[in-house]
């Protein structure tokens, strides 16, 4: 099954690294969900990309991983043993702030 551009969104970190992920995964974040589904024609909706000048690359990467992790394991009774989502202590605070920002 091919992925069309409309199904994805590009997330860009403070350093300019780009992460292309499924919109479905991105919608795990309420902020992104609002952003992508807002009725007004904001820049982000038109371009299909979101810049985060205040989120560093490793944090954004971790967030993307988390989106897929959550998408995979939320509401799936079939999976019995949900693996732990590993967070390195050194990025914990920054990640926490970003997740507060993105509401996820």
């Amino acid at each position: 099954m091919g992925i069309t551009k409309a199904d994805t969104v590009k997330l860009i970190s403070a350093e300019g690294f780009e992460f292309v992920i499924h919109k479905e995964a991105a919608m795990i974040s309420n902020t992104l969900k609002n952003m992508l589904s807002s009725s007004g024609g904001f820049q982000e909706t038109e371009l299909g990309e979101v810049r985060f000048p205040e989120i560093s690359t490793p944090i954004l990467e971790k967030l993307c991983q988390f989106f897929y992790y959550k998408l995979r394991y939320t509401n799936s009774a079939a999976v019995k043993n949900v693996p732990e989502f590993k967070i390195e202590p050194e990025i914990a605070i920054e990640l926490l702030m970003a997740s507060n920002f993105l509401d996820c």
Binding site: G41, Q43, E46
Partner: peptide
């Protein structure tokens, strides 16, 4: 701008971040 139907130039992320 929003009331003037001029939202297309605005960055959601920026506005959200500002309010945040």
């Amino acid at each position: 701008e929003i009331y003037n139907h001029n939202a297309s130039g605005l960055s959601f992320e920026e506005l959200y971040r500002s309010a945040y």
